[in-house]
Nucleic acid binder design. Structure first.
Length: 586
RNA sequence: GCCCUCGUAGCUCAGCAGGAUAGAGCAAUCGCCUCCUAAGCGAUAGGUCAGAGGUUCGAAUCCUCUCGAGGGCGCCA
């Protein structure tokens, strides 16, 4: 609808330009907006005000000329000049009636478009280190990332969903070593667990399965393990040195094969848990991309070499540095440490280089807000490699703070006491969790009220929307029980019966849906859709309360049934995009 | 210190590639079930859009500064 109006105005402007009324060289593509107030019609444009200056005319006079130059259309009933020079469009009733058969014809496709023209977009999200279960902070990234991906797919992009698995590096070694030490404790060894080790229950669980399946095959005596290891932090030492020495000792005592086995057991167990968790959360991926594969294929070294060839690598204090300050970063960054190991950053350069080499037109990273300092250096690397950094968009998701009974829920990874996504899902359900996660802009701090998410009342927006859907289903159910004929008539037949203001409001809301999907997708703002669905549900509930649908008058009943069935379709489509169920009964 | 995000009704937030009288939901007060699910609907009340300048026909929206809140700044990942 909106694009049709836009087309009309563009044609009018072209005519005026041909007549020399306005300069032809700077024709703007007219902006059309939904009128906020129904007194101002359905749509409005401000082109007259925008052009007034260059055309050297009064806005209202220009508006008059534009509206006279508008081509005839059966979409528009009339136009009006208002305020400082707005042109308001009043749509013909039939324009809205056409919508109903359109929604029925398109069904689940209503609201989808070809805007993206099949351009390839990669969305990488969550990508949490597989060192433990996902917690509620990752949940927001999961919900947000998957909805953004689905929205982009809905408007015609070809979307590739990816999880970057940090299956290499020191954190994973710390995890493997933590599990081994717990295993030793299960073998009745007495030891002091390192301050920097992973302390969660899941570490015990993995250690227990190792102990159960392999007995004491991995056992070494405590004295042997801790001999000449530098002191841990509580004993006045350095916890980093302590844990690094323990990792080296584990590798030495276990040997390559046995160490590798413990490491893989840890990685696979946790990764399986994460996969399972995300699947149950309604989040799916096209690819799980291994960081280790980058190192093993030589891609990391290749990336560093390319940077070196381009002249952006130098050596200082035994390490290799990338001159990221050349591209606006605040300091240069190490890509290879003095011990010869490449840094995580080096992997990430290789990873992003690989993303662009795979031919994506656009790459979107959904990261936690704590990574924001990281954005300039990745962009700097892409630029240094001769890639286009504007192809990369990093969307930073702020943390979610949980509240229960008005109190902040404390989370602490260090002590191993955190609220996992799994627990959250069990407590409030996947539907409510997903909805709450995306109902705020991603850069907005999110207060997640657990009590509200669980409450079965109108306070809870999830249930409010789902209830609208269930109510419509219930009307159908009632009709069947009372043997009322609800075979819908063809096309726009009887729709002229819809004269009530509530019906008009509902029609307008249904017409807005494709515009909302488009805006939500292009701005990466799923919350626009949640707000819209709440309004749509509100329009329906209001209508439901003031009018009956299963009435004697067959023509009016037919029209109303068409309207609410179209509403049900749009509710379904919207909920589906959010990954939320549309229950038939509540 | 530098950087990022935020500041809109008592609370949680929409609105921000400038547009017409700043909107919802909670909470408060008052109403609506012999009637398709009251997990619903209606009404009343609630505002110096943190503050001060600037840009312009027009600013909650863009720019600058001030104040306030939160977060980030490792040869960690």
């Amino acid at each position: 609808m909106k694009t049709q109006i836009q087309q009309l105005v563009a044609e009018a402007l072209q005519r005026l330009a041909d007549d020399g009324v306005i300069p032809a060289d700077s024709l703007p593509s007219p902006t059309i907006e939904r009128a906020r107030d129904s007194k101002h019609g359905d749509f409005a444009t401000n082109v007259a005000m925008v052009l007034a200056k260059t055309a050297r005319r009064k806005p209202r006079d220009l508006a008059q000329q534009v509206s006279e130059a508008l081509p005839a259309s059966d979409l528009v009933a009339r136009t009006e000049i208002a305020g400082p020079g707005f042109i308001n469009f009043y749509l013909a009733p039939d324009a809205y009636h056409q919508l109903i058969p359109e929604i029925f014809a398109k069904g689940p496709e209503y609201g989808r478009s070809e805007l993206g023209k099949g351009k390839r977009v990669q969305v990488e999200f969550v990508s949490a280190n597989p060192t433990g279960p996902l917690h509620v902070g990752h949940g927001r990234g999961a919900a947000y990332g998957s909805v953004v991906a689905d929205l982009l797919a809905a408007v015609g992009f070809e979307v590739h969903r990816e999880y970057y698995v940090n299956d290499a590096g020191r954190q994973m070694d710390i995890l493997g070593t933590s599990i081994w030490l717990r295993y030793l404790e299960l073998c009745d060894e007495t030891l002091t667990f390192p301050a920097n080790g992973y302390k969660g229950d899941y570490v015990w669980d993995i250690a227990a399965s190792l102990h159960r399946d392999h007995g004491e095959a991995y056992k070494h005596r405590t004295e042997e393990v801790f001999a000449e290891i530098p002191a841990d932090e509580p004993d006045g030492g350095d916890k980093e040195q302590h844990i690094d020495a323990l990792i080296a000792r584990a590798k030495h005592l276990l040997g390559d094969n046995r160490y590798r086995f413990v490491f893989e057991l840890a990685l696979n167990t946790i990764l399986d848990d994460i996969r399972d968790d995300l699947a149950l959360f309604g989040t799916r991926y096209d690819e799980w991309y291994s960081e280790r594969s980058l190192t093993e294929s030589g891609a990391v070294n290749k990336a560093v070499e390319r940077l070196r060839t381009a002249g952006y690598i130098y050596e200082k204090e035994g390490a290799l540095w990338f001159r990221s300050t050349e591209f606006g970063d605040e300091k240069d960054r190490v890509v290879e440490r003095d011990n010869g190991q490449t840094t995580y950053f080096a992997s990430d350069i290789a990873y992003h280089m690989d993303k662009l080499e795979r031919g994506f037109d656009r790459v979107i990273d959904v990261w936690g807000a704590d990574h924001h300092g990281y954005v300039p250096r990745v962009k700097a690397a892409l630029q240094a490699l001769g890639d286009d950094p504007s192809k990369l968009d990093v969307l930073l998701v702020q943390f979610a703070i949980l509240y229960r009974g008005g109190e902040k829920v404390q989370m602490s990874t260090r002590s191993g006491e955190f609220v996992t996504l799994r627990e959250l899902r069990k407590e409030v359900g996947a539907d409510a969790a997903r909805f709450f996660y995306v109902m705020r802009k991603c850069e907005q701090h999110l207060d997640f009220d657990l009590d509200l998410a669980k409450s079965e009342s109108s306070d809870n927006p999830v249930y409010y929307i789902q209830y609208a859907h269930a109510r419509i289903c219930s009307v159908l159910q009632q009709a069947a029980e009372k043997s009322i004929d609800i075979e819908l008539t063809e096309g726009t037949q009887n729709l002229e019966q819809l004269t009530e203001s509530h019906e008009q409001a509902l029609l307008v809301s249904l017409a807005k849906y494709p515009e909302v999907v488009e805006a939500a997708a292009l701005n990466e703002e799923p919350h626009q859709l949640t707000h819209y669905l709440r309004e749509l549900a509100n329009d329906f509930h209001t209508y439901y309360n003031s009018h009956k649908f299963l009435i004697e008058d067959a023509a009016l009943r037919d029209a109303r049934m068409k309207l609410i069935l179209a509403t049900r379709q749009v509710l379904r489509n919207g909920l589906n995009l959010l990954g939320i169920s549309a229950p038939e009964k509540m």
